[in-house]
Design a protein around this nucleic acid. Structure first.
Lengths: 214, 214
DNA sequence: TTTTCACTAAACACGCTGTATATCTAATTG
DNA sequence: CAATTAGATATACAGCGTGTTTAGTGAAAA
């Protein structure tokens, strides 16, 4: 009841060290597991030489741990370069760079794919990852807006932005990356995205690319 | 031990009728569930007014039931039109039709999305669905081969075929279908696929679409 | 010396899959 | 008609997972 103040440096450091150990163990587990089902807190805790309850104390839940792992991977994923892409004078070059950045990110750690899988079994975790994709979403919207000519309708711009968003998604990357290196996937997606934006560019608005209307 | 012969028509009919009822209940459940996690044999059995054990007797396992549901949806999905698409004299028109067919199929039943989700938690079920996608794979390969000009390298053809395969996937459809009707999704994917195959068409092989090389 | 924090240990409730055993029922067969 | 049979049922169990509770431990900080 006396609530004496207590600020421990040593214990806090030990705690964050242990927390980091759990995150790394979880990432390793995700990398090696063939299915997200195999990812259990019991196994992770054992691998990190920690009690399962400690994981709960540190991360709150299974979802909390997964989010922490994703954020850890994202931190190393050189996503900061997005600023570079947005600062590019030519928005076409900016889009090219954005595509490269995300291809390299999706391919940077096999655990990313498993985390992506976790979205399908946990709606709240899916929401969390969706929010972390908002920056990609906005960046693409902005680049498309900067590229688009006057004649391009709002609907056309939205269609192009959505297509580019889908092309630069983790799901798309995984489908193409099964049989080829990251650079090759990046080239394919870049070509597809360029073809898409060609339709709303001011220069060649007159059907350089075939229109779907019969 | 006497093994007297016993061929019951009425009982067999009642069994298949019950089996159908279970499949429909499972499909309804998948449609309404917000996550594949909510799909439990217990709930399905209860909804179908059947014991959980009956489900096991009929389908062997959870996976077996899911496969049965998918096959049931596929049967109604007018995928037979694929023959029509492949019989088309102009392979470009064939590809357009293929895209339409699959867009309509992916959009035909919300349960399809949930079944797609089930792939991520059950590797063996994923394998089963992958095999069911082989026909799409081969059809696209053939159409691309028929469209491709002499000058197109094998690698370029493979890249285009893989891209079209990814564009016509369930995952791609779902990403684009969140905010627009099926027909609009179909138009976007058709445009993207046309732009992709333009690169290997015999007529305009000289960079009508920008190349990714700097 | 006492308080405080992070961690541990051991259990619990709950839900899921998959399997085993015994029983019931109604159609079929001799 | 009476024995047989396939299918369904009722009930229980083992195993594994999440998430919570309760009590206890060890060491840094006050």
């Amino acid at each position: 009841m006396s609530r004496r103040s207590y600020v421990s440096v040593a214990r806090a450091e030990a705690a964050t060290e242990k927390k980091e150990r759990v995150i790394q163990a979880a990432a390793r587990f995700l990398r090696e597991a063939e299915s997200i089902t195999a990812f259990s807190l019991d196994a992770v805790a054992k691998a990190a030489d920690v009690t399962r309850l400690t994981v709960y104390n540190q991360f709150g839940s299974r979802r909390g741990l997964l989010e922490a792992v994703f954020d850890d991977i994202a931190r190393r994923g050189r996503l900061i370069r997005l600023n570079e892409a947005m600062a590019e004078a030519d928005p076409r070059k900016g889009l090219d760079l954005l595509i490269t950045i995300f291809c390299e990110f999706w391919g940077s750690d096999p655990a990313v794919a498993r985390l992506h899988d976790a979205m399908t079994i946990d709606p709240e975790f899916a929401q969390a990852l969706l929010e972390r994709n908002e920056r990609r979403r906005h960046s693409i919207d902005e680049l498309v807006a900067r590229i688009a000519g006057e004649q391009a309708s709002a609907a056309a711009r939205r269609d192009v932005a959505d297509l580019v968003f889908a092309l630069t998604s983790c799901a798309m990357f995984r489908m193409l990356a099964e049989t080829r290196p990251v650079a090759a996937v990046c080239a394919i997606i870049t070509d597809a995205a360029r073809a898409a934006i060609a339709r709303i560019e001011p220069e060649n608005s007159d059907g350089l690319v075939a229109n779907s209307a019969p």
